[in-house]
Amino acid sequence: MATLTATAAPTRSAALRKKRHPRDIVGWVAVHAVALAMGIGFALPIVFVVLTAFMSDQQALTSDLWPRSWHPENFLEVFDKAPMLEFFGNSLLYSVLATAGMLLSSIPAAYALARLRFRGSNFIFMLVIAAMMLPPQVVAVPIYSMWANLHLTGTLWPLVVPYFLGDAFSIFLLRQFFVTVPQDYFDAARMDGCNEFQMLYRVLVPMTKPGLAAAGLFTFLYTWNDYFGPLLYVGEKQDSWTLSLALASFRGMHQVQWNLTMAATVLVLVPVIVLFLFAQKSFVKGITFTGVKG
């Protein structure tokens, strides 16, 4: 189990570390030089974006890389150009409701698949995987027509409701966590007269908090980053736009320079980075659980 904060491969290096040959030092320098270049490569795009966000209108038209003068007011101007706070609110509403709905509907389903033995459970699990792998565009036309007939397009409902009816990826991920809980705990709980529901929230939920956190984070992030869903369902009504949707049309709609576009980009990125900094362990734990062994 790797986390981002843990040092790498201590077991492997322990033996070699004791006595360092000159060759090891050369190797160390080489590896770290490559790694440093790699890190810079990954970080550089964001650095340029932030630098451009601080440039003046005029300078943003040039090929300068470093701001001649700093214009933090660009970030305020973004809010003048578009109702970013409203978009932020919509994104938050979408993500929070979807995450809550996912947890409510998917935890029991994942529990049933992970811990309850019943006929057809394998088939259901295969169905979950098939649904997880389905490109969303395949079923877009009928689902869109369905919501249109209910006159609910232009609202966040079509985006949020499906999460209250089980999310395939989350069920899959949660199941991966749930199967790791030793059976003894459940047996003990059953001795105490717990029914399945009580076992679910007395035993399983407290024991798999990191898993629940990971599944929640992924759903939150997926919905926060979603573009296709909002484009389809709330594109028609600007009052319901999410941040991603607004960002995509920001430059075209407001005829602005790169500096403001990049400032808006930074504003969309910041919540994600903050979320990551607070929860990086859960992220990494979740990801490694999706990388399944056959």
Partner: peptide, 18 residues
């Protein structure tokens, strides 16, 4: 009066019944 409504949005709103 609502601005920034291109043809796609007009079409979507008609399909959606709003």
């Amino acid at each position: 009066s609502q601005g920034s409504q291109d043809d796609d949005k007009i079409t979507q709103s008609i399909r959606g019944g709003n």
